[in-house]
């Protein structure tokens, strides 16, 4: 584990419609170290409120900056969105990187909402494997977001709950339908998204070849607060989302 703090600046904030936005943060050191699957923990103000940092998956890391995909869900993400261009502090990169795939692997990425971000970073860095990206949204995603996903993956399949684009319904419903077409002994599933979606995938995907990137309520992000507990399957103990993950094999954890 190696991470550091960068006192940094938001250099761009792009509104992606509804509650979504992207921030681009100047972070030359963290950017150099960042690997797909890792996250940063951002202090959105210099004051005591909100007290804790907010964890965000790294969407991309290039040159001197990193990109983060955010959804306004509470006070921290609201302040961050309204902050636009301003100073923040970030700690990172945190968490273990996703593993490199074997050459014969077919990589299926299943992302719901902001869960697409770490998967997109993974797809961006994998160049040799066949990749299929399934992305699920509530509403029509912004053209910018779609373009970003198209850039990293030859096959992109969209599901929207309101039916404004692609399959009408939940991503999990789409996968139940498409499963036999994508499943093979070489298929590896990488899943990131909201908890109810993970619960469905837990039932329908093969646990030996499915890897789930979890979000946990965490205070530190680097293994000392014990807040982001995740139950180890078959054992009476918890793992930590931040330092044991965020990616877990479905065979190892209880969702």
């Amino acid at each position: 584990m190696r991470f550091l703090e960068e006192k940094s600046e938001i250099i761009n904030l792009i509104d992606l419609g509804k509650d979504y936005y992207q921030i681009v943060i100047s972070a030359p050191e963290i950017s150099k170290l960042a690997r797909p699957g890792q996250f940063v923990n951002i202090k959105v103000t210099g004051s005591l409120f909100p007290l804790l940092r907010r964890p965000f998956s790294i969407w991309s890391a290039k040159e001197n900056y990193i990109e983060v995909l955010c959804k306004e869900v509470g006070i921290g993400t609201k302040i961050l969105r309204e902050k636009k261009f301003g100073k923040i502090s970030l700690i990172g990169p945190l968490g273990k990187p996703f593993p490199e795939p074997s050459p014969e692997d077919i990589v299926v990425l299943l992302g719901g909402g902001t869960g697409i971000a770490p998967l997109s970073f993974y797809a961006e860095r994998i160049t040799e494997n066949k990749k299929i990206f399934f992305a699920g949204f509530k509403h029509l995603p912004s053209p910018y977001l779609l373009r970003r996903l198209e850039e990293v993956c030859e096959t992109l399949i969209i599901a929207t709950e309101d039916g404004s684009m692609g399959f009408k319904g939940l991503l999990s419903e789409l996968i139940e339908k498409e499963f036999k077409n994508i499943e093979s002994e070489y298929t590896k599933y990488f899943v990131c998204g909201p908890y109810p979606m993970l619960k469905v995938f837990e039932k329908i995907l093969p646990e030996q070849r499915t890897f789930v990137s979890l979000e946990g309520i965490m205070a530190c992000g680097f293994g000392i607060c014990m807040g982001c507990a995740v139950k180890k399957k078959g054992e009476n103990r918890y793992l930590r989302t931040c330092t044991d993950g965020t990616l877990f094999s479905l065979k190892d954890i209880e969702i």
């Binding site: 409120f49 909100p50 007290l51 804790l52 946990g216 309520i217 965490m218 205070a219 607060c225 014990m226 807040g227 982001c228 507990a229 995740v230 139950k231 009476n236 103990r237 918890y238």
Partner: peptide, 12 residues
Amino acid sequence: MGNPPPRLAETP
């Protein structure tokens, strides 16, 4: 083993 999650809640 400790308590099941969620184990944390931020307050003011």
